[in-house]
Nucleic acid binder design. Structure first.
Lengths: 229, 229, 229, 229
DNA sequence: AATGAATGAGGGTTCATTCAT
DNA sequence: TATGAATGAACCCTCATTCAT
């Protein structure tokens, strides 16, 4: 029916807008992009954009959700289906993520953008909805993977699984955002390929999850410092 | 003479502006702060601010340089003066930095803000000037520390020292910025103290620098994925 | 036949739109109501509204005409059929009108709205058409009532009947609009019920129509004032 | 000092803006006037207008306050200084007001505009502040005049002084606003000069305040009507 | 050195209205 | 008949920046 055509058209326009917006967000930064830019890029008027989204943040949130959905989907296929010991599966979780980011740098870029925005503008409630929804069952699956690794002896047991979980997730986020922010700039800074460096960082981090042979080297006494303020 | 008074006055005003701006940048985010806000906070007019700085980015750069200078100074006192094997000194380098960040969260905040801005607005040249200048001799000192560690057997030798160096610096930056962006939000998300988590992340990362007992576990074959675009 | 159904349907829709619009005009003020509001209220789309009326003013005019028709109809029943002397019939004309307004405050509201709009947006021609059409034979009937009153001695004779007529009509309009604008606010302002006050105003005004016992008190010499501009 | 020049300049600009705005408000209606219109009229930019007033309503309020201040001032000179019996002073109060309005029609126009706006947009609190402030001691002075009139026998005693007071004030407002809305249109409608008509309305109303010779004519029995809704 | 005034550019948003379906 | 899409014109407001004092 005609109705179906309408719906299809709307969906096409929505996608068009999202694509244009993502491109712009990544190149110029969410905050630097105006609704006008998006309108121009999609050859629509500003007013029309508002027929589809009620503001820029909603657009950004939508794009982020799509990206996050991709991640979960990829994990489902390439990580959680993989049989191996705990450490190997954990490695897969981390490495596969960065593998894909090297292929799709825009995802890291968008994540960096969105996380920054989240830390500023989004209400905690709105952010939580987006982030939690985007993670779906990942946290649970990863937690079980970690517990399994501690049982099968491939992961160190001296750290609480919940802490390990939070560590992995924050490491991933932190380094992904760094990757996104650096973009192609890192070569200029370090004279090394960005991919090389981040692969090694992952490797170092992951090796730290293995059972540590000797009791951990005694940490040097901590520096005591006053606040700078 | 009168001239001296003028110079002193100018210096005072400059500092006042920088202090007010830092406070605002940290609380509201650089992009959300207007010159008007800074003017109001320092009880000057917008026009007067322009007598001291030519725009907001310059102010931010100045503040960042000051913070970075602090870091270098602290390292000089608490890290490079410390005698120990390579791994221990490296650990100090990383842990001391985060110790101080927990005491001075605004530094992490400012770093996150500035790095984000750098990835967007700053010309590569301007950014390079700021970042390189701020690092001064740190890179060199850290590189020597790493090489020493590989010689004294406390650091793994299967990774090039330059790569290890870049790894440490990028890890530090990435996790610091993540820390800055999260602020106090992480507790709500993970139910764990932010400090606990980040200390463990550092520990895991640093343990990965130790010589690895067994030849590195054979990585699972990498997933092959097409670009999402 | 089908044609009849169409016509009936159109008529129903028209009425629906008018009802919704009146409700909105009264509550929010004509200028604050958008075509979109009316569309939403009548569960139609904006585009559909345009199939029935060419703009908001036309809708408002239609509603006003309906209200005015009511007034004429009521007068026909309750005023002009009443036998009494001139003053008594005049009183009826005024008092009945306000009696009804107290029962139907939305009519006063709508009148106030419409008069205000008339003074601004409506072309003089369009306004004349609406106002004159709405008055139909009222002016004539009232004029005869006044002349009758002057003959039967119940109305003062020192003022020209045409002037008395214009006085009554303008008084009615002015106080009705004031009533409409005040709504229920007057109580807060004066601590008196709005109905009480307006009834007394009518009474004072009407008593002024009686033959004045003494020659009118000599007015104090008029103040001479320059324009404020 | 230069400071004085600044202050004087500001004051001039303020007045310029107010004058332009009043002219526009009167001709086009407050709601039809945009800040852009005012800016254009005063040969400033929109942004500059915002340096002087924070929005259109504030401008309108200011103009209304000025007009109301004029009224109070005129009353002080021409009404309250006048010695006469209660009815004569009351007459002065009403007639002087309209005398001045005929000379300065823009005042009636502005009052009509403002009252309409008050009934819609202004918060009751904001409106009260403006209206009460503008009336200053007028209410009290008029009340005493009325009580005096009842004592000296020039005013009817069968109506409570407070009610008489509210009657006069509402009559004045209502008819003034009607006058403002009609502008010069009334001639076209009634073939009579607007001034003539309104003078007679005042006269009729004021004559109603005199002690009524006979017991008030028994009102015809009131029409009983159902609500139109 | 510091200021107040003024600007121009641009951002987000809303609405009446038209058009193709 | 009714509708969804799209538009373009406005409007309000904010800000960085410059200029004369």
């Amino acid at each position: 029916m005609a109705n179906g055509a309408y719906v299809a058209h709307r969906e096409n326009q929505r996608e068009l807008i999202l694509e244009v917006a993502e491109e712009l967000f990544i190149n110029k930064g969410i905050e630097q992009v105006t609704i006008g830019d998006i309108a121009e890029g999609s050859r629509l008027t500003r007013a029309t954009i508002y027929k589809y989204f009620s503001n820029k943040e909603e657009i950004a949130g939508e794009i982020y959700k799509n990206v996050a959905k991709l991640w979960v989907e990829r994990d489902r296929q390439d990580v959680w289906g993989f049989a191996g010991n705990g450490w190997e599966r954990l490695e897969r979780f981390v490495v596969t993520h960065f593998d894909n980011l090297f292929l799709n740098p825009h995802e890291a870029r968008m994540s960096a953008e969105f996380n920054y925005m989240y830390s500023k503008k989004l209400s905690v409630a709105a952010a939580k909805e987006i982030f939690l929804e985007s993670l779906e069952g990942e946290r649970q699956r990863l937690l079980e993977c970690i517990k399994g690794g501690q049982e099968d002896g491939s992961l160190r047991e001296d750290i609480d699984p919940d802490v390990l979980l939070a560590s992995v997730l924050n490491f991933n986020s932190g380094m992904m955002n760094r990757l996104g922010e650096l973009g192609d700039k890192v070569e200029g800074e370090y004279g090394l390929g960005v991919e090389t460096i981040f692969r090694q960082i992952c490797r170092l981090f992951l090796d730290g999850f293995k059972p540590q042979a000797s009791p951990r080297a005694k940490a040097a006494p901590r520096a005591k410092r006053a606040s700078s303020k």
